[in-house]
Amino acid sequence: MSTANAFLSASPASPGFLALLGGTFLFAGCVKGVTGMGLPTVAMGLLGLGMPPVAAAGLLVVPSLVTNLWQCATGTGTGALLRRLWPLLLASAAGAGASAALLARLDPLWTGPALGVALIVYALHALWARPLKVPPGAERWLSPLVGAVTGIVTGATGVFVMPAVPYLQALQLGRDALVQALGWSFTVSTLALAAGLAAHGALRAPQIGWSVLATLPALAGMALGQRLRARLSPQRFRQAFLGLLLLLGLELASRALR
């Protein structure tokens, strides 16, 4: 039995597990509703405090897929956007599917700290790095390279954001196109990770059932976040969100030293 299925077999329907599942996805959905991203990243960070990352990755498959497809449906010009981004998306899918064995097979003693490092790198970059801009002509070879690296990080940690998010921001897409591009990137990564985990026996019916259930608080949180977006300072909320990711990352990464 895989680490993920062993964990879920030992803890389903317990009050603590249900509270962790509901609270995590309600908050992660709220973050996505306010910022347009962050559900998988927040969910992986919070769930990783109480379970192996491979179990957390299985639980976020359906909520991440549903909320990202919702995000993909916004905006116009989808065909042109996909024609531009397909090298990134294809390489990301290939990388995530191929490297999912790392998350499925490695000891949580190592995958937990790896998840923590991924969260730290993303939070620090988003907080302090200067905005990037892709030079003219570089997109042709950068897109598949960034996609492949993103896929490998996704397969190893369950986190979809690095380096795809800063790269997409550097393409100067415009607000609506960027939100849609992030949705497509996360959707492809989610599907590829799910396929990779299933191929290695780390994603089975019990996880899918709990993942479907987790979609309800995720959607409720996303709706709440969209309502709160007009009342909150986006900059302050973003700083608080990234600060939380940094703290979660430090906690998870420090487990390798204990």
Rank of each mutant, 00 (worst) to 15 (best):
P135W: 00
G29W: 08
L173D: 11
A253Y: 06
V179S: 10
G29Y: 02
P135F: 00
V117M: 13
M1K: 06
H200F: 14
R255A: 02
F160Y: 15
A202R: 02
L173I: 06
G137E: 00
A100D: 07
P53T: 08
L145T: 15
V34A: 09
G79V: 11
V31Y: 02
G183S: 09
G147F: 13
A57C: 02
T41K: 04
A73K: 14
A94H: 01
L197T: 00
N68V: 04
Q180I: 05
A170P: 09
F17A: 12
Q226K: 13
A91N: 00
V161Q: 13
T215V: 11
L142N: 10
P108C: 10
L252E: 03
T24M: 10
Q169A: 08
M37P: 03
A126E: 14
A101E: 07
Y167G: 13
A28Q: 13
L109A: 14
A57I: 01
G174L: 04
A93M: 14
N5R: 01
L47S: 00
L90C: 10
L246H: 02
A218T: 03
G33V: 06
T24H: 06
G183T: 09
V146N: 04
T67R: 12
G36N: 05
A118H: 02
L142E: 07
M162C: 05
V212D: 05
T157I: 14
L115E: 03
L168C: 14
A202I: 04
